[in-house]
Design a protein around this nucleic acid. Structure first.
Length: 494
RNA sequence: CGGGGUGUGGCGCAGUUUGGUAGCGCACUUGGUUUGGGACCAAGGGGUCGCAGGUUCAAAUCCUGUCGCCCCGACCA
């Protein structure tokens, strides 16, 4: 097994090949936009803020969805579908909730040519319509818990949009559960946060910080909100998933009551939790590089791309061998594809598939035919090796895909750790946020005022109050110097 | 919603200052030669210059309005 290209394969001279993508160092934002379009994840639609998720991007989403859906089902939830339209009166019921969403809802006012007697909102989230139904379905403690999830689209009329990170319409899953008491609801809320953490870290190879949101940042209408927060490679944070304990707020206004064992009528405790296509943005910005995307094998639409090198005189022989390997890998359950288009050169294909983030490339040419090998090239670190094209190739590839998945997580975790700093000095804090970015752990008094001022003065927000530091002495508040209540994660965020 | 930028074949741009027959590179089509990190030659096709008004003999170019996209800020998955 010979390694004929390792170390730092992305040599300087190679960079100029990727002429379609703006380098991260030059303009990170433009890099991101170049990647999502050139890799054919999406294209802009004729409606402002809306995008088409193209087949490559949609397959990625399908893979992500499939793995999360399995986890949601494994924890006892079932899928259902609620309507896209919500009567205005339903949205109006929960005061905080309306206030939070009213500025960004899209209204339906006409059916055909006739004006509707009651306007409809296009769901920005489904709490209200689901609560309306739960109030009909729940009568007894025997009806609880209700554990329902739905995969759907939602619409929020955003002023500033960016592909995947913030679009007017996006795809997501939203779980909505009802429980008999606070304890169960809280357990559910935290359980689903943990499902998200496990999913995002293991399947997407994106490390996250779990914790509770502050009052200011919590979901409109929730009692408590928890989140997983990820760090992008430009040092800005991205909320990757949220889980809310809704308390009895919605139950009270939607009259969701059940008769308990003790004969008393009680309000249910509810939760809701969601992750969206925004996770695709996280995937790109956590793992991507100047050559394009780098996708974790577990969700990559194509795990292995075969590039046969087939000059005229060896063409038949190469393609026949390649075809056999393709079938062998498919049979082994690997998502493999072969790019045997004769009109493109191998080098062109290498760059193209690297841009699309395919984790592993398999090259097969006349030289390999003679040596009885294939060349495997890793996207995550650029290493190339020749391995025997014999039995066991599929196993070797599966093992490599696992290694890549693992390495990608470790690399991202290392980056996050190296860019998580701790300080109790506000001036130092400002410098870090302005120059290095990343996460900053600091004490916070718990006052909204301090949180607000820090945001105004530094653009950094409290991402969450992390679980893993809750037993440590928080010291003084970063800004007001009073006793801190918590250690919190600050960052500039998307 | 404020400040800035931008809109010309699919993509990237020139042309706008000083109005006068719309151009370049890439991509695309056809034929041929090629194939281990974005191959080459030849011949082709494709644009009412974002949109709507106006000025003018004449508008990509000047004027007014409007829309989209991008960046920076205030609000959000």
């Amino acid at each position: 097994m010979a390694i004929y290209k390792g170390g730092t394969p992305m040599a300087k001279k190679d960079k100029e090949f990727v002429k379609e993508i703006t380098p991260q160092s030059q303009d990170y934002s433009q890099w991101y936009l170049d990647v999502v379009q050139k890799a054919q994840l999406m294209d802009y639609a004729p409606v402002k803020g809306c995008m088409v998720i193209r087949p490559y991007g949609y397959t990625l989403w399908e893979n992500m969805k499939q793995r999360l859906d399995a986890r949601i089902k494994a924890t006892g939830h079932v899928n259902a579908y609620f309507p896209l339209f919500i009567p205005e009166s339903l949205l109006q019921k929960e005061a905080e909730h309306v206030e939070g969403f009213a500025p960004e809802v899209a209204w339906v006012t006409h059916g055909g040519n006739e004006k509707l007697t009651e306007r409809l909102v296009v769901r920005p989230t489904s709490e209200t319509i689901i609560c309306e139904m739960y109030s009909r379905w729940i009568q007894s403690y025997r009806d609880l818990p209700v554990l329902i999830n739905q995969w759907c689209n939602v619409v929020r009329w955003e002023k500033v949009t960016r592909p995947f990170l913030r679009t007017s319409e996006f795809l997501w899953q939203e779980g909505h559960t009802a429980h008999c008491n606070e304890e169960e609801a809280e357990e559910e809320t935290l359980k689903m946060l943990e499902v998200y953490r496990d999913y995002v870290e293991n399947d997407l190879a994106v490390p996250v910080v779990t914790g509770r949101k502050t009052e200011r940042e919590k979901f409109a209408g929730a009692l408590r909100t928890y989140s997983i927060e990820a760090l992008m490679s430009d040092g800005k944070a991205l909320q990757a998933g949220t889980s809310h304990n809704l308390g009895t707020h919605f139950a009270e206004v939607f009259d969701i009551q059940y008769l308990d064992r003790d004969g008393e009528l009680k309000y249910v405790w509810q939760t809701s939790w969601g992750t969206s296509t925004r996770l695709i943005g996280a995937l790109i910005m956590v793992h991507g590089d100047d050559r394009g995307m780098v996708l974790p094998p577990r969700v990559a639409p194509v795990q292995v791309i075969m590039v046969p090198i087939a000059p005229q005189k060896d063409r038949e022989e190469v393609l026949s061998k390649a075809g056999a390997i393709l079938q062998e890998l498919k049979d082994a359950g690997i998502r493999v594809d072969m790019d045997d288009r004769p009109e493109y050169s191998p080098g062109w294909k290498f760059n193209e598939w690297e841009m699309k983030g395919v984790p592993l490339r398999l090259e097969l040419g006349p030289r390999d035919l003679k040596a009885g090998t294939v060349v495997l090239a890793r996207r995550d670190n650029g290493e190339k090796e020749a391995v025997p094209a014999a039995d066991g190739l599929a196993e070797r590839i599966k093992q490599l895909l696992e290694e890549i998945q693992d390495n990608m997580y470790k690399k991202a975790k290392k980056f996050m750790d190296e860019n998580t700093r701790r300080t109790d000095d506000y001036e130092e804090f400002k410098t870090i946020i302005a120059e290095k970015r990343g996460f900053v752990i600091a004490g916070w008094c718990g006052e909204d005022d301090c949180e607000q001022k820090i945001k105004e003065e530094t653009k950094a927000t409290i991402r969450n109050i992390p679980f893993h530091l809750q037993d440590e002495n928080p010291g003084k508040c970063l800004r007001c110097r009073n006793e801190a209540k918590h250690l919190v994660y600050f960052a500039r965020a998307y």
